[in-house]
């Protein structure tokens, strides 16, 4: 299998508090990996380290074989290769839906306006938001905003999509519409790394599930291995607590 991102001995600490400890982790092309774990286990920090929103304290991140922590490599073009979807959507409030999906294509990828618009339209259709081009983010529901945010990331045609708890800030009735879009993308063969609390999604969609606890990867394997037949006590405990609710 072709490795897209390979993480070696990654560590991150905020002051004296170690959030990630010696993480080794790989994402292969076309794979859907779900990261689960309690709040504070470091799963979001891991995701944020991958696209350098947090600066790792140590270790290596290899993207197609090159270490992106090497200062000679441009972090801007690297980040443009990764799509990021945030818990709080973070759509640009000053821009309408279409422009949200166009601006980075124009600025970063230097695509011509017509082409950028066409690509944006294509992905807005994928997420079912093609009728809301003129709407401002604040005029949309949470679920709609998150779907636009997914289209915005897809418009860059990234190699990997990173999802940071994409449904955690949504009202329950809107979780489904976002998960459906993500499921659709997974089936289309997109490489995805998803930090999530949605165990059902992890079970149905993931190729691999990673359970993180206190800054380390505690257990890793197929959804069945991790979610149904966990080996570690910590994993069992976590699953018992989450599945009960």
């Amino acid at each position: 299998m072709e490795k897209v991102i390979e993480i070696r001995h990654l560590s991150k600490s905020f002051g004296t508090h170690g959030v990630l400890k010696d993480i080794d982790f790989t994402i292969n092309k076309g794979e859907v990996v779900c990261v689960i774990g309690a709040s504070g286990s470091g799963k979001s920090t891991l995701l944020r380290c991958i696209n350098l929103l947090e600066k790792p304290s140590g270790g290596e991140i290899l993207y197609n074989g090159t270490n992106i922590l090497d200062k000679r490599n441009s972090i801007y073009s690297y980040r443009a290769r990764l799509g990021m979807v945030f818990q709080q959507f973070n759509l640009f409030h000053n821009l309408n839906v279409l422009t949200n999906c166009v601006v980075a294509q124009r600025q970063v990828l230097k695509r011509p306006l017509e082409e950028a618009r066409k690509i944006a339209m294509k992905y807005l259709e994928v997420v079912g938001m093609e009728q809301y081009l003129d709407a401002r983010p604040m005029q949309l529901s949470g679920g709609q905003q998150q779907r636009v945010a997914i289209a915005r990331a897809l418009s860059m045609e990234p190699d990997v999509m990173l999802f940071d708890e994409p449904t955690s800030a949504l009202d329950p009735e809107m979780v489904g519409e976002v998960l459906n879009v993500m499921k659709h993308l997974a089936e289309a063969g997109l490489t995805m790394l998803v930090v999530t609390h949605e165990m059902g999604f992890a079970k149905d969609v993931a190729d691999r599930v990673v359970f993180m606890d206190q800054g380390v990867i505690m257990e890793e394997g197929s959804p069945e291995q991790v979610l149904i037949h966990p080996q570690k006590d910590r994993t069992r405990e976590f699953l018992k607590r989450t599945l009960r609710t």
């Binding site: 696209n51 929103l53 801007y76 073009s77 690297y78 980040r79 443009a80 290769r81 990764l82 799509g83 990021m84 945030f86 709080q88 959507f89 973070n90 759509l91 640009f92 409030h93 000053n94 601006v103 980075a104 600025q107 970063v108 990828l109 945010a149 915005r152 990331a153 860059m156």
Partner: peptide, 25 residues
């Protein structure tokens, strides 16, 4: 900060982030 982060995550440099996202708001 989410606005800054979203712009950064899309690969925008600080000047692009400022002129296209932060300053208009």
């Amino acid at each position: 900060t989410g606005q800054f982060e979203a712009a950064q995550a899309l690969g925008m440099n600080p000047v692009q982030t400022m002129t296209k996202v932060v300053l208009p708001q």
